[in-house]
Design a protein around this nucleic acid. Structure first.
Lengths: 239, 239
DNA sequence: TAGTGGTCTAGACCACCCA
DNA sequence: GGGTGGTCTAGACCACTAC
C-alpha cells in the first residue's frame, strides 16, 4: 500500500518549478537555472530534473536550446504566433498579418461571461473588438471578453502598439496564456460581422469560441472569432 | 564535424521498431517484446529502447500498460473512438453514435483526388457516403474517397458490420490510420447534404476536409464531412 | 513469485554555443 | 575552454499484473 496522493519525484520537482514560474521568479523569455544547478538545489539527480523539464517543454511552458539553456516560453517570439491561430491559406503563401483594433469598452459581466471566466455576475469586464487582416483581406472579426481586474488600463491606444495580443498581455499585464479550449461552429453572418469582413449578410462564417487559460487552469479570456473562410481555412492536425 | 544524417541511437532503434510495425510483424492490439528483450536483440541498453518507445507512445503508435507490456495501438478500443472525431454536444451528455452507410461505388480518380491520394489520374477509387447519427439526430454527412487497391472488396454490406470505419479498415484490410490533416471551412448546405442532415437548404454547415495517413506519411483516405453544428460543435484544444 | 513497465541514480561522453 | 543541454550506460529499486 501507498498513499493515494503518491507522485513520483520528478513530478514533485515539476510542481516546484511550476510554482516558481507562477510566482514570476523568471519572466517570459528568461533563462531558468541549469539542470545541474536545479538538481543540486533540490537534492536530486540531474536525470530527475531533466524529466520534469521534459514534461514542461512538451507542454510549451519551457523551451530548451542546446548549448544555451532552458527558457521560459513567450509569445514575443514571432515563430509562436500561429500557436493559437490555426489559420492557413487555401492556396498560395501566407500574407503578412495585421491586427486592427476597432473598439474597446467596459461593461459588467452577464451570467454567461461570468460563468465562463469564473467571475461574479456584474464583475467589471473589458470588451475588445478587432479585425485580423491577412494581406489586405479582413479574415477574422474577434470579440474578446477580459476581466478588467487583470487588464486595468487596456484601451484602444494600448492595443495599437502593433505587437500580438498575447505578447501585449504578457509584457504589459504579466498574464501568460498557456492553453485554450476552442469550440467551432458554422453560423450565418450577422450584420456587424458581415460588414467588417466584407461578405454578404447571411454568408456562412466559421465561429470559433475560445476560452484561454493561464497557470492553474485559470480562465482569463473569452473570445468569439468569426472567420471568413473563402480564401483561408482553419487547420488542424490529428495525431 | 559529423555526418549530416547523424541521428541518435534511440532514433535508429525507433526506426527499427517502426519497420517491424509496418511489416505487420505485430498486429493491432498485439504486445510487442519487452523492453529488456528488445535491448538485448538490438545490443543497446534498456534506457535507449525505452526512449524510442516513449516517442512512439507519444505518437499514439504504441500503448504502454504498466505490469502488462507494450501494445500496438488499435482503433478497436472504444476509448479511442473520438481520437479522430472532435465532436462534442453543446450541452448535455453525448448520445450513442451510429454510422449509417448510404452509398458505395467505384470510380476513376480525377485530378484532385489523384493528387491528394498520390495516385495516377484515372486510378480506381471507391467512394462511400455515410451518415453519422448521435442519438436520433443526423450530425455528420461524410463523403469518403479511398484507393480501391487497398480496399478491394469494400461494399455497403461490408460497411454494415457495425464497427467503426477505422477499426474495419484495420482488421479487414490491414490499413492502419495513424495521422490526419484537417481543413475546416464554413459553407452553405447543398441540396444533398441538407436533405441527409435534415436542415434547410443553404444553412451554414461546417465542412471538414480530412486527409488521413498510414505509416510513412502515405495518404490513404480523403474525406469531406459536412457537420451540422446546431447541437454539436467541433472541439479543439490548443496547448 | 516472476515478469512487465516506471523511477531514480551516478557517471561518462557528445553536440552545441559563446566568449 | 567552460558551460549548457542531449545521449547512453549499468544497476538498483518500486509499482502493477498475472498466475
Amino acid at each position: 500500500m501507498h498513499s493515494p496522493t503518491f507522485s513520483p519525484l520528478y513530478r514533485q520537482i515539476k510542481e516546484l518549478i511550476l510554482r516558481d514560474l507562477e510566482s514570476g521568479e523568471w519572466g517570459p523569455g528568461d533563462p531558468i537555472p541549469s539542470e545541474s544547478e536545479l538538481a543540486g538545489r533540490f537534492g536530486v539527480s540531474q536525470g530527475t530534473v531533466r524529466k520534469a523539464i521534459d514534461e514542461m517543454a512538451a507542454e510549451n511552458l519551457l523551451v530548451r536550446q542546446q548549448g544555451k539553456g532552458t527558457f521560459v516560453a513567450t509569445h514575443k517570439d514571432p515563430g509562436s504566433f500561429f500557436r493559437f491561430l490555426r489559420l492557413a491559406p487555401n492556396d498560395g503563401d501566407l500574407q503578412v498579418s495585421q491586427s486592427v483594433p476597432l473598439e474597446c469598452w467596459r461593461a459588467k459581466a452577464g451570467a454567461d461571461v461570468a460563468r465562463i471566466l469564473a467571475l461574479n455576475t456584474g464583475a467589471p469586464i473589458t470588451i475588445v473588438r478587432r479585425l485580423l487582416k491577412l494581406g489586405d483581406e479582413p479574415v477574422v472579426f474577434d470579440e474578446i471578453y477580459l476581466p478588467s481586474e487583470l487588464f486595468p488600463d487596456l484601451s484602444l491606444d494600448v492595443l495599437r502598439s502593433g505587437e500580438s495580443l498575447y505578447s501585449l498581455f504578457e509584457t504589459r499585464y504579466g498574464v501568460r496564456m498557456i492553453r485554450a479550449d476552442e469550440r467551432l461552429r458554422a453560423v450565418s453572418a450577422d450584420r456587424v460581422s458581415a460588414e467588417w469582413l466584407q461578405v454578404a449578410d447571411g454568408s456562412p462564417l466559421l465561429l470559433v469560441e475560445r476560452v484561454t487559460f493561464t497557470y492553474g487552469h485559470k480562465p482569463v479570456e473569452w473570445r468569439r472569432g468569426f472567420y471568413s473562410t473563402r480564401n483561408y481555412h482553419y487547420h488542424n492536425e490529428l495525431g
